[in-house]
Design a protein around this nucleic acid. Structure first.
Length: 657
RNA sequence: GCUGGAGUAGCUCAGUCGGUAGAGCAGCCGCCUCGUAAGCGGCAGGUCAGGGGUUCAAAUCCCCUCUCCAGCUCCA
């Protein structure tokens, strides 16, 4: 067996009668019902019915293998913490994406120095070659084993008997525990755990503790706050190093840093948290985004409106937002015996546009559209640059339609979002999710079922595989969220499409049907960028500031080799601007090398160097961002190429990233 | 909001044991007039986040507030 095999999956070639269970969430991973298995655990028998036991190795470098490796490392970390802080109570310690964590209840929070000490202790435990030894115990035995561990006891007490337990005639579940056993056979530590684990601690090739953080027990604000330690573990030192390098790169791509360095965003303290100034270069990009969406919404049958930033509070009382989100709205302003609020949503304004006159079925679907800037009083700890701002602009539309029009409208929204992602270089949607009724909600179950079905039908008809996020809908209706993946693989939720059967009733919306009677319209909310500011930040991070040609704030930088050629440089810029390209001359008296470097650090897509040869021949020396050069390109030809590239990019025909 | 970390020039950072602040880049001025990622010299720039306290003396120690970062919770 190869050295990097750390566990196995065990399955039987035909459906078992209860001996093995299928793990939730892994239906598509393995062709047969299967379970992950420790390497030293006795294999199940064939069951006497002729079934064959199939053993599939799990390698440390596979996704399943990494989870096992990380989970085992979490155990080692918890043991190290227990050694160093004997009073620590342990909660849970799962593998997560790219790493693991373990939560502890300790006297004082961990310090960065503690992390180093814990890491040192962990390395000693790795050298000690402790074996992970699996054992099954009853609930009573488990409770006794963890008598001093209240969180473990709570976990044990909450577990219900599984189908396996019931099939095997038990009315209480079996618990597995893993003992860490020293080479001399002594038990060093024991934890409640489903497993599987590595054979021994020395099989952890590379790990690192990353940070500490507070985390509520069971993720609930009303529960005690525990101290969480995050770490990561990999199948080799090289893989760990690559991961740490990637984290460093992601940090360098931070939109706040890039926005500042490239002169696009300014977020000074004087302005207030979660608010930003778009400097000219950032504003150019934003305008191109806004121009794109404005043109496309008009082309797709939307009607534009403009609405104010403040309004009487009563609007939010009617809509229900004051009741549900009052704490997250900026406080009211008293003016002439009325209270005004900054708007956190555009919907009521669009509704007022709808109710500005009597509506007929002939008006429907009525698609009202606006780039509406809203203000939300986000809690102080959640504000995060432009990704989570207190003032931001939604490409917001509300579609008023008949019930039988909902599916087609939602399909059109999904298609619209797909076209938008293509144009902005984010490729195809990476995830389409239908969020269903949450615990706290309004409306009848009939309304919910109908709306959820409409969204699922639309998602299916649009050709995307969709997932269901149970209970994640808004209080007034279900929604579809669309995600995209950026150039370094991170996923962002961008578009949201929501069905609303709250507001039409609250505002008494109606249209006159063919029968001459009043009917209540359905309402679909949708924002494709989501927030313009947030989408801008995602683009900035995804492109690392090197925007695709059509979006670049400055597309062409003309650099004369010496001041003698400044006039000619201006002629070249004029030729570019004449066809709508954004071009500038670098007239500084830096050396040529320095000016080339400046253009590159500012990530200008195209730099044109002009001197005596170019002036005489009507050519330019072209340098693209990132390196490759072409000399002696006729200016006319180059300008044509660039115009075409700009057009194609805007239409989403060029893959970028 | 909660837990932890941080805040020194526009940016990135140094500042020892408590003795009143420094570099590089950027900016400005001058020289250089240059063929594809940094030419040379000079000048200017700081209420050390803000407030309070301890001290003969505070960027440095203590307290409070603000802001930022990481995570938790939340996200119409």
């Amino acid at each position: 067996m190869r050295n990097d095999v750390i566990a196995a999956t065990v399955a039987r070639s035909d459906a078992p009668d209860g001996a093995l269970v299928q793990l939730p969430g892994q239906q598509n991973v393995h062709p047969h019902p299967h379970e992950e298995w420790d390497l030293d655990r006795a294999l199940p028998s064939g069951g006497g019915d002729g079934a064959t036991v199939i053993l599939t190795p799990i390698r440390a470098s596979s996704p399943e293998g990494r989870d096992i490796l990380r989970h085992s490392t979490a155990h080692v970390m918890a043991q190290a913490v227990t050694d160093l802080f004997p009073e620590a109570k342990w909660a849970i310690g799962p593998a997560v994406e790219d790493g693991f964590y373990y939560d502890f209840d300790v006297e004082r929070p961990f310090t960065p120095e503690d992390l180093e000490t814990i890491e040192t202790r962990m390395r000693e435990l790795l050298v000690a070659k402790q074996r992970f030894v699996r054992a099954e115990v009853t609930r009573e035995e488990a409770l006794a084993m963890f008598a001093q561990q209240p969180y473990k006891r709570e976990v044990i007490e909450r577990v219900e008997p599984s189908e396996v337990d019931i099939a095997e005639g038990r009315d209480e579940p079996t618990f597995t525990v893993y003992r860490n056993v020293d080479v001399d056979g002594g038990e060093a530590w024991v934890d409640l755990c489903r497993g599987p684990h590595l054979g021994s601690t020395d099989r952890i090739p590379a790990f690192k503790l990353l940070r500490t953080a507070g985390a509520y027990w069971r993720g609930r604000e009303d529960q005690p706050m525990l101290q969480r330690i995050y770490g990561t573990a990999w199948e080799s030192q090289a893989a760990l190093d690559a991961h740490l390098t990637m984290l460093e790169e992601a940090r360098a791509r931070d939109h706040r840093r890039l926005g500042r360095e490239l002169g696009m965003l300014h977020m000074p303290e004087e302005l207030g948290p979660g608010l930003a100034i778009f400097l000219p270069k950032g504003a150019h990009v934003r305008r191109l985004m806004e121009d794109w969406i404005r043109e496309e919404t008009l082309a797709r049958g939307y009607e534009p409106v403009y609405t104010p930033h403040v309004a009487k509070e009563d609007l939010w009382r009617i809509s229900g937002h004051l009741e549900n989100y009052g704490d997250l709205m900026f406080p009211g302003m008293e003016v002439e015996h009325a209270t005004y609020r900054l708007k956190p949503m555009n919907c009521p304004f669009h509704i007022l546009a709808y109710t500005s006159r009597t509506r007929s079925y002939r008006d429907l679907p009525l698609r009202i559209s606006e780039l509406g800037t809203v203000y939300r009083f986000e809690r102080s700890g959640v504000v995060n640059g432009m990704l989570r701002a207190r003032g931001f602009t939604q490409d917001d539309s509300h579609i008023f339609c008949r019930p039988d029009q909902v599916v087609d409208e939602v399909i059109a929204c999904i298609t619209f979002a797909r076209d938008l992602y293509r144009a902005f270089g984010l490729g195809e949607p990476s995830r389409v999710a239908v969020s269903t009724r949450p615990d706290k909600s309004i409306g009848t179950s009939e309304q919910w079922e109908q709306a959820e079905r409409a969204l699922m039908d639309a998602a299916a008809a649009s050709g995307f595989a969709y997932e269901v996020d149970a209970g994640e809908g808004a209080f007034y209706g279900p929604k579809i969220d669309i995600h995209a993946r950026d150039a370094i693989g991170r996923e962002w939720q961008l578009t949201t499409i929501q069905v609303d059967f709250n507001l039409p009733g609250r505002f008494g919306l109606a249209y006159i049907g063919e029968d001459g009677q009043k009917h209540e319209p359905y309402m679909v909310h949708r924002a494709l960028f989501g927030s313009i500011e947030r989408f801008f930040a995602v683009l900035l991070e995804s492109t690392n500031g090197a925007f695709p040609f059509w979006l670049a704030p400055e597309q062409v930088r003309v650099v004369p080799v010496a001041a003698d050629f400044l006039d000619h440089a201006h002629t070249v810029v004029a030729a570019c601007r004449a066809v709508g390209l954004r071009a500038e001359v670098d007239a500084s008296d830096d050396s040529l090398g320095a000016r080339i470097r400046t253009a590159q650090t500012e990530k200008v897509p195209v730099t044109l160097v002009v001197g005596a040869d170019e002036q005489a021949q009507g050519t330019v020396a072209v340098r693209r961002y990132g390196g490759d050069q072409r000399k002696g390109v006729p200016l006319d030809q180059l300008v044509q190429e660039l115009v075409e590239e700009s057009r194609a990019g805007r239409r989403g025909e060029i893959a970028v990233g």
